[in-house]
């Protein structure tokens, strides 16, 4: 199949995947940085209000294992986004369709797990932002299994 047979929707999906994939990696690194900086700020005795101190303490009290699990899921989501993006461009069945669906499932798991394991100070709790982060995985799965099902067959 020539590359010109690729629907432009798949190309757009791939570009969005690359952007969101990079953001997922940055988000994962952000969790580590916030956890680390919060600890440093508390131990260095920075001037802050009692409410801010309480918020930072909650972040510091969250276990490194929980943070590690969430960061691993963020990286997995980012990696799947990047790989499936390449799959869309090459119109591959496994790299595109399977990895794309895999991304959808891992992304939903990532949102659920981060809400469960991390304190609200780190995730903002269940908000419209959470629904927003579920939109793209769901949208991707719907498109891959309907509109672009026959285009990812190589």
């Amino acid at each position: 199949m020539a590359s010109s047979d690729r629907p432009s929707g798949l190309t757009a999906l791939a570009v969005i995947n690359f952007i969101f994939g990079t953001l997922e990696f940055l988000g994962g690194i952000g969790f580590i940085v916030i956890r680390f900086v919060a600890g440093k700020m508390l131990s260095n005795g920075h001037e802050m209000s009692a409410k801010e101190r309480e918020g930072l303490q909650v972040i510091v009290d969250s276990s490194w294992i929980n943070v590690g699990i969430v960061v691993a899921l963020a990286f997995a989501t980012g990696l799947l986004l990047l790989l499936s993006g390449i799959g869309y461009l090459k119109q591959k069945r496994v790299l595109g369709r399977w990895f794309g669906n895999g991304y959808g499932i891992v992304a939903i798991t990532y949102v659920t797990v981060s809400l469960t394991l991390l304190p609200e100070e780190l995730t903002e709790g269940f908000s419209i932002g959470v629904i927003r982060s579920l939109i793209y995985p769901c949208f991707t799965m719907v498109l891959l299994n309907s509109t672009f099902r026959r285009d990812l067959a190589r």
Binding site: P7, S8, G9, T11, A12, I16, L143, T147, F148
Partner: peptide
Amino acid sequence: TLRSGTGVV
């Protein structure tokens, strides 16, 4: 529209 890039975006 959905198959086109503009529809997805």
